[in-house]
């Protein structure tokens, strides 16, 4: 089947898609966008988190046909060529990236949190990111990064 949908602001078409492929597979193997990750492909880790019509979902459980005419945004669609999105920048600056495999999913989830809640407290950050597993960092620097990104979005100086 052919699937046509918007990815990171651009209309993309994938041909010869087998019905059993997931949105994740289509992004990674057909559209050259391997940013969303395949840590479990069972909806149990959040590494495949992308925006589908502005809502964070696990791309691994979205059947390919379901994205027809819809809008997807991946980690590759945050920021621009020249500049990183504040969330991306904060993750690097605060040391929240080790192996980085969980990072794209966490960045999308954090990005969503901050735009809905520009001043999140620790408990709110933890609850919002509970669907993203990380094995390397112990999460603390991730929480630091979200605070930094949120402060940046509020236009505050970050220390």
């Amino acid at each position: 089947m052919r699937v046509k949908f918007t990815v990171n602001g651009e209309e993309r078409t994938a041909d010869d898609v087998w019905e059993g492929e997931s949105l994740l597979y289509v992004l990674r193997e057909r559209l050259g966008l391997p940013g969303a990750k395949n840590a479990c492909e069972q909806g149990e880790c959040g590494s495949c988190t992308v925006y589908l019509d502005d809502t964070p979902v696990c791309a691994c459980l979205v059947a390919a046909g379901q994205v027809q005419d819809r809008e997807v945004r991946t980690v590759e669609g945050l920021g621009s060529e020249e500049e990183l999105d504040p969330v991306q920048q904060a993750f690097i600056e605060r040391g929240a990236v080790q192996c980085g495999f969980c990072t794209p999913g966490l960045i999308v989830a954090a990005h969503d949190l901050i735009r809905r809640n520009p001043c999140p407290k620790d408990a709110e950050i933890r609850e919002a990111l509970a669907g993203n597993l990380c094995r390397c960092t112990g999460y603390e620097k991730i929480i630091d990064a979200v605070h930094t990104a949120a402060a940046h979005s509020r236009g505050e100086a970050t220390s």
Partner: peptide, 11 residues
Amino acid sequence: GALKVRGEFAY
């Protein structure tokens, strides 16, 4: 870091 946060680091 930049490649990893952009989703461009080749695992």
